[in-house]
Design a protein around this nucleic acid. Structure first.
Lengths: 111, 111
DNA sequence: TGCTTATTTGGCAATATAACCAATTATGCC
DNA sequence: GGCATAATTGGTTATATTGCCAAATAAGCA
């Protein structure tokens, strides 16, 4: 159903909507990272990192693979970070208050 | 600062991370919409709609313009919805558990 | 087996979100 | 001014999120 699809899309965005999780995603985008490495990036308690990773995994954004005693996380769909070209555009605009019809930052059908 | 930028990006994603707000954004992507029209789409209480709109506006995703006694909302950066090609890819993958190196859904530097 | 390292989970407190109703503000019309 | 319509804001309650500590689980090594 359409409603269900929207629910899932929202869940993905919501999962990405946290500074620490974003920092983790950026790190993971550079290649597989284990929990300890991600803690070094973010700085929170290890248990907190683990919970954030669970959120991202649960949303389907990352996957994990156990190697030895470490768990390595990777992006399941690397392009998720491309969106930031557009998000940054949201942040950047100060002046324009009307709808822009041009293609903005991405190729296809904006509206 | 880099940390601050991340905080703002997260705020934009977080604002989009709610089914009702997503439905509203889709409607608004089709052109300016006033609060009453959006209520018809979503179905919640008018006050709830108004609060959701405040969240989106606060994140910089939409802008508003008062005409008569109605307030019309529009997308500030229409491309925000393009991201869903990628979000849907996140939802669609069942099989692949390893990092994909190909371009996925969007043009440029995935990682 | 016992010890160390890596990660997850249970439990808890603080804070944030979401939704509704009721009341308020703002605009237009008579 | 007085009334109707459109939208926002105050107040409240229920629920979810976040972050930490402590405890549990899992894997490797002596």
């Amino acid at each position: 159903m359409d409603e269900e699809r929207r629910r899932q899309r929202a869940a993905v965005l919501k999962a990405m909507g946290h500074p620490s999780r974003l920092a983790m995603l950026e790190a993971i985008a550079g290649g597989e990272r284990c929990v300890g490495e991600l803690q070094a990036v973010v700085g929170s308690d290890l248990s907190t990192i683990s919970r954030h990773l669970a959120v991202l995994k649960n949303a389907g954004i990352i996957g994990d693979r156990k190697r030895g005693q470490q768990v390595f996380y990777h992006l399941r769909v690397p392009c998720v970070l491309n969106f930031f070209r557009c998000v940054d555009a949201v942040l950047g605009v100060e002046s324009l208050l009307e709808i822009q019809d041009d293609g903005c930052c991405l190729p296809a059908r904006s509206r």
